[in-house]
């Protein structure tokens, strides 16, 4: 895990569910085939209503045209991020689109587990309502060791909640790497 991550912010509201992150009709593509799995990046966040996509103004598509990579790599969400289905395709789709970190007020359990155990994106929790402080396109910098978020566009700094119990799994890169490191399964 890199200890400093930089990128452009993409801001969303509360209750971003997995159907908005990756609509069910797209769950048919291979996740292991390098070329085919790019479709997950291409359709990431494609069901977010346009007026709520890229806050505060909205109307900013996460993916432009037929691309599978987004220009935004840090997701800012509200409460209950990733609610809904158990589809691991959701954090996978964000990763395929180039997202490194999600910072939300709270998460739905299965999305959070999937993000951590699959090593797809780092799910940080923030204190307060970051979605009202940060604008889509702001340049952000995260110091992972110190749990600090710096908004280089506004110059403001914020403390993020430490990853706590899941930190060893996040640092290992996922549950299998963690289990091998700790001798639970053979390496």
């Amino acid at each position: 895990m890199k200890n400093r991550i930089e990128g452009k912010a993409y801001v969303l509201g509360d209750n971003i569910d997995t159907d908005q992150i990756i609509p069910a009709e797209h769950l048919v593509y291979s996740l292991s085939d390098e070329e085919e799995s790019k479709k997950y990046g291409q359709f990431a966040l494609s069901s977010v209503p346009l007026e709520q996509a890229g806050l505060p103004d909205g109307g900013i598509p996460f993916i432009k045209g037929d691309n599978h990579l987004s220009e935004f790599s840090i997701m800012i969400g509200g409460s209950n991020f990733g609610c809904g289905s158990s589809r691991e395709h959701a954090p996978f789709a964000l990763q395929k689109a180039g997202v490194k970190i999600v910072i939300a007020e709270s998460y739905a359990r299965i999305f959070y587990r999937n993000a951590v155990d699959g090593g797809f994106v780092i799910p940080y929790e923030c204190t307060g309502k970051l979605k009202q402080e940060i604008c889509t396109g702001d340049l952000l910098e995260i110091d992972v060791d110190r749990n600090i978020l710096k908004n280089n566009t506004s110059g403001k700094e914020y403390h993020l909640k430490p990853l706590g119990d899941v930190l060893p799994i996040v640092e290992a890169g996922g549950i299998f790497e963690y289990a091998r490191k700790t001798g639970m399964i053979e390496s």
Partner: peptide, 10 residues
Amino acid sequence: TGVGNTDAAF
């Protein structure tokens, strides 16, 4: 309870 693919594979 529900889990994702990675947890299920584990």
